[in-house]
């Protein structure tokens, strides 16, 4: 009797979570013949990795290069977020700031604003005659024309996802046992050694979740690339959107979606491994 209580929910998730994903898988693995009958095929996946001209190198093939560019831009953004975010989290977690929660709050407030508006704000700044170029012109520095380029997409990702990096690193730094740091100092370690041997290794779980929380939305985004990367700018997310909403090729779109899920699962596996690796103390 008690178990029956969960059954409506089991039906709910079957219809609204399991079946939709199975439908994506089904569409990715089928095609229709001339009579309109569906048959099993791997063609949709083959198309993703296909050469457009004979003998084209694998990495230069059109869809493969889209995937690589998505991974590459997400990696660059993640690296920049780490380089900018770690010191910020470290400073906030350290001594000298009494109102830590208020500082953290200040970093999180912009996250509550609509994601699209935050991205759109950069249009005004980066435009040819935008705020940034007016400022640069005023200072006598040559104009920057980065809107609708890779640089603008990376900037958009860094801006939108930076708090995702700061928050988990800050949390794990705050949890660090201060007596460990003091013990290292008592044993004669200097500031750099305390950081590299004690503080940083202990903050790795925070770094790993920060990296995950920046890389995942970065690699799947299509909004940032659509607004800041201009019309024909393509990441893997844009490719899926186009197949479903513009081209109407659900089968190819589904195949790309499955490839994206596999990509995410692989990167999660890699991140989880880094997290579990024992901290080497030589």
């Amino acid at each position: 009797m008690k178990k029956l209580f969960a059954y409506p929910y089991v039906v709910w998730i079957s219809i609204f979570i399991v079946v939709p994903l199975l439908l994506v898988l089904y569409y990715s693995l089928t095609a229709v013949d001339a009579d309109g009958a569906a048959y099993f095929t791997l063609d949709n996946y083959r198309r993703f990795f296909e050469a457009s001209t004979p003998g084209q190198p694998f990495l230069e093939r059109i869809y493969v290069s889209v995937m690589l560019r998505s991974i590459w831009l997400a990696l660059i953004s993640t690296a920049i977020c780490f380089v900018l975010g770690y010191p910020a989290a470290y400073i906030m977690a350290g001594k000298g700031f009494s109102d830590k929660s208020f500082l953290l709050f200040l970093f999180l407030v912009p996250m509550w604003m609509n994601f699209l508006l935050r991205t759109y704000a950069w249009l005004t700044i980066l435009e040819q005659n935008g705020v940034l170029n007016n400022l640069l012109g005023f200072l006598g520095i040559p104009k920057l024309d980065i809107l609708y380029t890779d640089a603008a997409v990376v900037l958009g990702m860094v801006y939108n996802f930076l708090p995702f990096m700061i928050l988990p690193i800050y949390t794990s730094l705050r949890k660090t046992d201060r007596s460990l740091i003091e013990a290292a100092q008592d044993l004669g370690a200097d500031g750099i050694k305390v950081f590299s041997r004690v503080v940083f290794p202990l903050s790795i779980p925070g770094v790993v979740s920060g990296v995950t929380m920046v890389f995942m939305p970065g690699v799947t985004t299509f909004i940032i690339s659509n607004l800041l990367g201009g019309g024909q700018y393509i990441l893997i997310g844009n490719l899926i959107e186009q197949q479903f909403l513009k081209v109407g090729d659900w089968r190819f779109g589904s195949a790309i979606s499955v490839i994206l899920i596999i990509l995410i699962l692989i990167s999660m596996g890699i991140f989880a491994r880094v997290d579990k690796e024992p901290v080497t103390t030589a």
Binding site: F16, P20, L21, L23, V24, Y27, M216, P217, T220, F222, G237, I240, E241, F244, W250, G253, S254, S257, L260, I261, I264
Partner: peptide, 11 residues
């Protein structure tokens, strides 16, 4: 990814 949830629900 949201985009996968989105297209799967659309289908």
């Amino acid at each position: 990814p949201d985009i996968v949830t989105g297209v799967s629900l659309m289908i």
